[in-house]
Amino acid sequence: MRKILPLLLVLATPALAGGPPVDDDWPCQQRKTGAISRAAIWAGPEVFSGRWDDDSQVAALARKLASRRTPLEEAGPLIDAFAKEAGADKDKRLTLLFDGTLDLINGERAKVMAAITRYARGQKALAAKVREDADKAADAQESQGYGQDITAPDALEKAHPELKWDKRIFDDRAQALTYVCESPVLLEKRAFALARAIQEKL
């Protein structure tokens, strides 16, 4: 029984068992992980009552910080200036600023990850189309009795230029994927760096 119980747990709740959840549509080497946890990057105060977007100054700065258009080097001075003018509620407002930044980055990260999954599905479909078209073209060639080596990719592509294009798109996208897959990690790094910079001002 002692052996069976953990096994059942593994079957019932793969996430709790510690193994990475399996997702066939996730094309990246990097593990697919859920939203960035507040606790993973923050040792400051717990959540305060009130929403970060109720404070217009906090909301504006959170948007600016979360945006990848703002270089990280500019974040420090911006947070510094905010902290100096934050008044008596400084810790609360800094915590809300962190919560806002994290919310926005998590939102962006979720979008990026959904896009990666869509991208991977598109690639799969394209791969299937290339395979199918190549088979069809090869069959057609064979039935016409060209008598040439239909396994040679050159011969096929000469007769069917659209195949070449599809393959090229597929290869380009596959290469781009390496970079695209870095995006969620880059956002995690950004969230962490911002959390640290905000925390220093508490």
């Binding site: 996430a15 709790l16 510690g18 992980t33 606790a39 993973a40």
Partner: peptide
């Protein structure tokens, strides 16, 4: 069991 973190993290 770090409060606020999933076991996976």
């Amino acid at each position: 069991d770090v409060p606020g973190l999933t076991r996976e993290e």
